[in-house]
Amino acid sequence: MISLRQIRAARALLGWSQQMLADKALLSVKAVARLERNEVTSHAATVEALERTLTQAGIIFIPAGHGLGEGVQLASDLLPVRAEETP
Rank of each mutant, 00 (worst) to 15 (best):
L74W: 03
S42E: 11
L50P: 00
L54N: 03
Q18L: 06
A75S: 11
R11G: 05
A45H: 14
V40W: 07
S28F: 01
D23T: 03
L13K: 04
E85F: 14
E70D: 10
T53I: 02
A83S: 15
A25F: 06
R5M: 12
H66P: 08
T53W: 05
I2G: 00
F61W: 02
V40L: 11
G71Y: 01
A33G: 11
E36S: 01
G65R: 09
S76P: 09
T86C: 14
R8L: 08
G65K: 06
E36W: 02
E39F: 10
P63L: 09
H43T: 15
N38S: 15
E84M: 15
L26V: 13
Q6V: 07
I59Y: 05
L13I: 02
F61K: 01
E84G: 12
A12M: 10
S3G: 07
I62Q: 10
T41M: 15
G67T: 07
L68N: 09
L14S: 04
P87N: 11
G71R: 02
G69V: 08
D23N: 10
Q56F: 06
T53F: 03
G65H: 08
R34E: 11
G71C: 01
G67S: 00
S42M: 12
A64T: 10
T46Q: 06
H66T: 13
L68E: 12
V72W: 05
T86D: 15
A33I: 06
E85W: 13
L14Y: 03
P80T: 02
S17Y: 00
T46G: 01
A10I: 00
I7C: 08
T53E: 03
A57E: 05
L14F: 06
A10K: 03
E39T: 07
A31D: 04
